[in-house]
Amino acid sequence: MTLRSQIRVSMKVNGEACELDVPASTTLADSLRAQLSLTGTKVGCDVGECGACTVLADGVPTLGCLVLTVEMDGHEITTIEGVADSRLSGLQRAFVEEAGLQCGFCTPGMILAASRLAADAGDREIRDALAGNICRCTGYTKIVAAIRRGLRDTSHAKRR
């Protein structure tokens, strides 16, 4: 693909079909934010070092700043806006109630990075899964607690 060329991309974003015309060099994060006004996905460094741009691509946590939009043609993307319908997801509620967020900039990325962990993931496993998501405010303690609780709550809800 020529970097400057415009390419039509068809993908599903938060359950809805989207058609975009973007320059081939546009990252997924930039397209989501600028073309689709989904600004919940954040850009903290643009080089894959902070994880703030984490989204789900076909259910897998993926760095939006290191994927070209054109690669997502035919794929399904979930952003923080698509994590829950009207109420909060188990993880979101846990982050809010356990004070797992302060300035909030890393939060969408954290929630998505954690969303595929097993319900019984321990602290060590959670921290390893978050190794690529930087937080400067919380010291991570309440983030880990929020994720532990959120995963448990989500799993309980599913079983009901």
């Binding site: 600004t39 923080i80 806006e81 909060l88």
Partner: peptide, 21 residues
């Protein structure tokens, strides 16, 4: 008390300057 800006931040609706239309 749960922080007043918690839900907006956890849902990605809180707007930082780079998020403004």
């Amino acid at each position: 008390l749960v922080r007043v800006d918690g839900v907006a931040k956890a849902t990605g609706t809180a707007k930082y300057p780079q998020d403004l239309p």
